[in-house]
Design a protein around this nucleic acid. Sequence first.
DNA 1: CAAATTTGACCACT
DNA 2: AGTGGTCAAATTTG
Length: 312
Amino acid sequence: MDGGGMHQAPSWLAASGSSASEDEHEAVIRELTRGHQLTARLRAEALRALRGQGQAEATAAFILQEVSRAFTVCLSIMSSPARAPPPAPLAVVPRRRDDSIPREQKMTSSPHYDGYQWRKYGQKRITRTQFPRCYYRCSFHRERSCRATKQVQQCSNAQPPQYLVMYFNEHTCDTAAAAAVEAPGAATAMLDMSSAGAGRRGERRGVVQEDHELQLLVSSLTCVLGGHQHHSPSDAAVAVNNVALAQEPPPRARGTCELDAPAPVVDDAPGEMPPRLNVDVLGALDVMDYGDVTGALSFGDSYGLPDGDLPF
DNA sequence: CAAATTTGACCACT
DNA sequence: AGTGGTCAAATTTG
């Protein structure tokens, strides 16, 4: 998705919490996200309850899948800069130097996993914004003179938090990592190759972790939706907790930027691949935003809670 | 000890 | 003068 039409920085993001329209916009995103999460939970619960009931199970799966898709579409629309509320009279329109027009910008709940390897080189508090902006450049900035940079800024307190990621300059490092995003199964191997020359600690974290999260996610969904044999509460809890852990990095001794704390890589059991999915599950994965799904799963450990005692 | 991150300072731009 | 982007020394991490 090499951006084309999103070149104007959304000024509503730069001045957080200072106008009613911004608050409303943020509230809508928050509620839609919550609805999406609840739908994911409802789907899991319904499919568990209807397991083995043929037509009823299929119908419930289809309806909830469509509801989930509707939430995803709405969130996508509301998160696009075109849908941003008009700037408040006092809002500061971000000033951009001529050579710093982002070639792409996107809203995401997982700003670090874009297939490339980045190194942070700065962080700045932006006036009238709630969260700092973090500056990253390609890890191959030196070795391969890659000029690609990106800026990450949290822009909502929604669950999961939404981040605005702006990309500047094209990658000239020719890393194969970008392709790994489209073929997660090959991510590890491809990065092993691309990082061979670099050999620096931590450069593979992002994509490897994403691959791992995806495996955990698929495994968890297979357990929940498919009623798989090894569906034991403890297994599911471990998987869900791992996903939640990866999604929410632990605090650091000296970290001030909650945007940037990279999650620890959870060691994989070698050769432990998730079971093959049926069409239903793949369909669900297809329509559900990955980051939102992990967010939804992160409250899986509250499944034991009585109805109405939701953790948010 | 090497590499990554943090953070105050500096610089360019409006 | 104010703001945002980058630099680089200090600090942290594994």
